[in-house]
């Protein structure tokens, strides 16, 4: 599936004078470093070479590493992902770019029935990474805005990574490529240019499967990931001004799911709000609540849990409708207020 994606003007930090690099540049740096350090790494995707990708994540990489290693492909997600699987079991470390996460439906079989099951069936490891530009709030409509991570988090054999910060965009992408299992890497379009921070490329690469506490607080735990982290932190700032101290846990990966960090936080705050952009039903929030309810963490709750998610509708295109669709800072603040009785 191809599309002209460049009209999506997410808030841009790229040109500001603030120090550091953008989330998008951190992804590009990770890919460049991986290509430079490891000859097994190959990039595959539609328009990733000459054009540098629909979002320019791979800009300049084909010039630097050649068309053999940064490979433009026909418009054929099944063939691309299947090809990556074949490369991976031949000793390569392929990284696929899907132009939009929405198009992952076109390669479901290869991901779910080939990649996810080969190791369980035959002990054949499939170290592929599929980069999925994900999420809405860009007026891109029902087919360029989806957050399909919840669907794939249900599939045994796949790992699901959702970086929310500049450092994680770099570190988790490196960790994903180094991981021997198939990793779906849901990078956030809304964060591409809106997030800018210093990048420490020499920092130890944090492995997949560890959540991070992004803000400490004792009144309520907000669990989130990906595009919702900046909104949760903004909500926490606002709540702090009202005297409510919010702990914000960034899951960083959905599979493996670091429930220990969530449960530890819950035991301190006794209140839980889960925020994700993906719609709610049968989603990650539901899984977190279910697992907590199956554990003694349940007894730490002083109030019912609350999920703040997109509604169970397709992603609407109109900015007015979409503003209502994607969880806002206001909705997060209201949810926390209601929970703490403020």
């Amino acid at each position: 599936m191809t599309t002209e994606a460049t009209w999506f003007a997410s808030a841009s930090a790229e040109d500001t004078a603030a120090p550091g690099v953008t989330y998008l540049e951190a992804l590009r740096t990770a890919l460049a470093d991986l290509l430079a350090e490891d000859e097994r790494v190959l990039l595959l995707g539609e328009d990733i070479g000459t054009m540098g990708g629909a979002f320019r994540v791979t800009a300049g990489l084909q010039d630097r590493f050649g068309g053999d290693r940064v490979r433009d492909t026909p418009m054929a997600e099944t063939a691309i992902v299947g090809c990556a699987i074949g490369l991976a079991i031949s000793g390569y470390r392929p990284v696929v770019e899907l132009q939009f996460a929405d198009f992952i439906s076109c390669c479901y079989d290869q991901l779910v029935n080939e990649a996810a099951k080969l190791h369980y069936r035959f002990g054949i490891a499939v170290p592929i990474v599929v980069r999925c530009p994900s999420g809405g709030a860009l007026s891109a409509g029902p087919f360029h805005s989806q957050c399909p991570e919840g669907i794939f988090a249900h599939v045994p054999g796949l790992k699901i990574v959702c970086p929310a910060t500049v450092q994680d965009a770099y570190g988790l992408l490196r960790a994903a490529v180094e991981d021997p299992d198939p990793v779906l890497f849901f990078e956030q379009k809304a964060l591409y240019r809106s997030q800018k921070a210093p990048l420490d490329a020499a920092a130890p690469v944090a492995g997949i499967g560890r959540a991070a506490v992004r803000r400490r607080g004792e009144d309520v735990t907000v669990v989130t990931y990906g595009s919702m982290l900046p909104r949760c932190l903004a909500a926490a700032e606002r709540l702090a001004a009202e005297g409510v101290e919010t702990e914000v846990v960034d899951l960083r990966s959905l599979v493996p799911l670091d429930l220990d960090t969530v449960a530890d936080s819950l035991r301190r705050t006794n209140r839980l709000v889960i925020v994700h952009e993906d719609n709610g039903s049968s989603g990650i929030g539901a899984e977190i609540v279910a697992r907590l309810a199956e554990s003694d963490a349940l007894y730490a709750l002083d109030a019912p849990v609350c999920r703040v998610t997109a509604p169970d509708t397709p992603v609407p295109s109109s900015p007015l409708l979409e503003e209502r669709y994607v969880p806002s800072v206001e909705r997060i603040v209201s949810a926390v207020r209601a929970l703490v009785g403020a």
């Binding site: 099944t78 063939a79 992902v81 299947g82 090809c83 990556a84 699987i85 074949g86 490369l87 991976a88 079991i89 031949s90 000793g91 390569y92 392929p94 079989d109 290869q110 029935n113 080939e114």
Partner: peptide, 12 residues
């Protein structure tokens, strides 16, 4: 579904 995988095997 082995055919798309065969693409990668052949590219290797």
């Amino acid at each position: 579904d082995s055919w798309p995988v065969a693409l990668g095997l052949a590219l290797a």
